[in-house]
Design a protein around this nucleic acid. Sequence first.
DNA 1: GCCGCTCGTCCAGCATACTGAACAGATGGC
DNA 2: GCCATCTGTTCAGTATGCTGGACGAGCGGC
Lengths: 278, 278
Amino acid sequence: MPEAIQIRDEATETDSLAPAVTRAGAILDVLADSAGEAPGPSELARRLGLPKSSIANICNALAEIGLVRRIGTGFALGRKLAELGGAYLASIDQVQEFYDACRSLVTGSEETVQLAVLDDLEMTYLARHDGRQPVRLTSQIGRRLPATITATGKAALASLPDAELDRRLADVRDLPAFTANSLTTVAALRADLELVRRRGYAMDDEETVEGVVCYGVMIPGRRPGEGPYAASITLLKARATEERVPLLIDDLHRLARRLSDPLRVDQPPSRDGTGPSP
Amino acid sequence: MPEAIQIRDEATETDSLAPAVTRAGAILDVLADSAGEAPGPSELARRLGLPKSSIANICNALAEIGLVRRIGTGFALGRKLAELGGAYLASIDQVQEFYDACRSLVTGSEETVQLAVLDDLEMTYLARHDGRQPVRLTSQIGRRLPATITATGKAALASLPDAELDRRLADVRDLPAFTANSLTTVAALRADLELVRRRGYAMDDEETVEGVVCYGVMIPGRRPGEGPYAASITLLKARATEERVPLLIDDLHRLARRLSDPLRVDQPPSRDGTGPSP
DNA sequence: GCCGCTCGTCCAGCATACTGAACAGATGGC
DNA sequence: GCCATCTGTTCAGTATGCTGGACGAGCGGC
């Protein structure tokens, strides 16, 4: 099947000064997409359009440091990624406080609350608080979703300066759509972002999953250069009643205030603020 | 301060065929250990005993693929690690089933249950079920702990063939100790492992944290070459009563049976077995 | 405000990691 | 049982990534 040789042009191969590292990143991306496949050097070389022996050398080095593991003759993601991923999450103060803060939310503690960070036009989900609801529709930690159809994403995008927003939307024509409600045009997105700015929170009205709504607020980064964060509450549309939603919005703003700047918020003078416990 | 130049000899620099990748792994390790520091190329070069310009090139490549991010002029772990770490965890069937299985445990669902994988003589924690207990002493996902003082580790070690066990303990003199109860000699460990084999479960009796006990059972890997997994239940020693512990052990064995081989276990004929829900 | 320190970046030359083809083993099909 | 085709691995030659030193910028201090 000669047509299957779809060389992933990998346009960003703008000769880096450490090509082996750049290629290692491409290999990890491919392995992340092909779960349960364990592709070997040949398969990887075909998908990436790179020399086979080069791939083999890099894979062996990756296996030695634990970033990938050998499955028979092929490769899969390795356990050091769990270690480093955990270390990355632990290095973000907002993630640490998120878990404690969620538990003390009045209404929101029963729902699914998530924390994500904006990266270009995508959100990476960093933390999740599982409420009592049996909804299993929440995305796993580390998952990426388009910012344009999620409450977290729209809350984060709305916080950007207009110039920065223009830059990111410059060469974008169609937005990715997951449901019939997904915003598909830049114009519709801009109008929605303006609404977000005015009312102070974002809403995903069945734009990601049918029957599910999300409310989101922005959380600023603490260090310069850190993309804006955002928190959201996810619930079945049937549960989003006129009396519950305002309470959830309040909880989100409370959460955002606490995660924004720990010094400015009322916090217990004691060393530990895990809330009420017997 | 000339004495601070502690070159991390990094003995395993047995010239790999892709040295840039091996060094990238070393850089990630250093960054994982130095949270909130954001060391620059010079600092990294000093700690690793490697040329400064080489480190700078590799760091730039790592930043381009998102494995590290720039903090001012220095570097820290990047958000792609959360993505890849999540993908790694999602690729392990046991992790997926662990979360569902824990919720249906009779007694154990109220306690802290963890899943870990053995790697040489250390355990990497992959998943955690938070019970109702307010104990905050559980380790985060991705954390590594010595196998010799944890219930998960001893359960996993006890499952190894004697020859393999001998190999791993060959050049080990003193075991790492966290508390006064930690096993410190290979002889004491071997005796404990024999006990684990006879009674079918492992116990960490305040060997990791004072006042906290753990019970652990082994969970075999499904694919060849996968290190053994193990599940554990953590609780305050005061809660480990004579009536609760046998129930918890039963739950652990149930959990192990379900995670061992999904085909051999009674499972609902429907597509989804998330247990009782209204 | 000047100096000494250390930072991150740049550049030329050499050693070396990458390339491409040939190799041997495993596998499936007519 | 044989061939065709795949796999992963090996090897020599060369392009090229790595090295060490030099450069300019940014601080902190007697």
